[in-house]
Design a protein around this nucleic acid. Structure first.
Lengths: 114, 114
DNA sequence: CGGAATCCCCAGTGATACTG
DNA sequence: CAGTATCACTGGGGATTCCG
């Protein structure tokens, strides 16, 4: 899986800029899945990796970084031994859930008609 | 802009398969914008191209072919001279609108907080 | 006008291995 | 456990050109 979204073509095209804007957030391999996995609450790196088997550590950490940079998720290092890290959606990230929910809904319809 | 989605990693991963399923449909460069432009009704090739300035003819026609193949849009050749072609959403395609609407909504929130 | 065919290119993935 | 480092590759996308 992979998602690419052009990140910038400077003069915002007239119409569907918001669409493009937000697509960029949920773009990137496995990004939607990560958000979806976090929808019920915080999860640790290895849990996320287990939730989404085909993802590699590299891509997962890359995606987590991006999402954190965009303010969609927050990262908390737990001072345990061995150290573990928890990720959870920020308020901003939770705003994405309805959109993903809508996508999932359509996915079901697509599936049932295929 | 570009979107990639893995099309198949055979044993459907437990959870977010529907998500992936549907993401694949709206993935691909400018696909969401095309659907969005068709939201209000049928449009011709050149109109779509005008709606989404940065898209090239090749990519637009590629995307239209894919979307048609997926049953999201329908293609009608008008027997005029010069010939023109109209595209419109199928019932299936219209199912996608709520999802895109949700994405646009989130886009606004993202924008207003950035 | 609408779009198919070609060529090229690199960003984004994946695989693998290594580290604190 | 939670990453980072390297490498190689693939195909999606852009530009350009040609066709009916």
């Amino acid at each position: 899986m992979a998602l690419k979204m052009r990140k910038n073509h400077s003069p915002n095209p007239p119409g569907p800029c918001m669409l493009t804007e937000c697509m960029a957030v949920i773009a990137g391999a496995w990004a939607p899945n990560v958000i979806w996995s976090l929808r019920a609450g915080a999860r640790r790196f290895s849990e996320l990796k287990a939730d989404i088997p085909p993802v590699t550590s590299k891509v997962l950490s890359t995606r987590l970084s991006e999402l954190e940079a965009r303010g969609v998720i927050s990262r908390h290092v737990m001072p345990t031994s061995p150290p573990s890290v928890e990720y959870q959606l920020t308020a901003l990230g939770r705003e994405l859930i309805p959109a993903l929910q809508a996508i999932v809904d359509v996915g079901h319809k697509l599936k049932s008609r295929a």
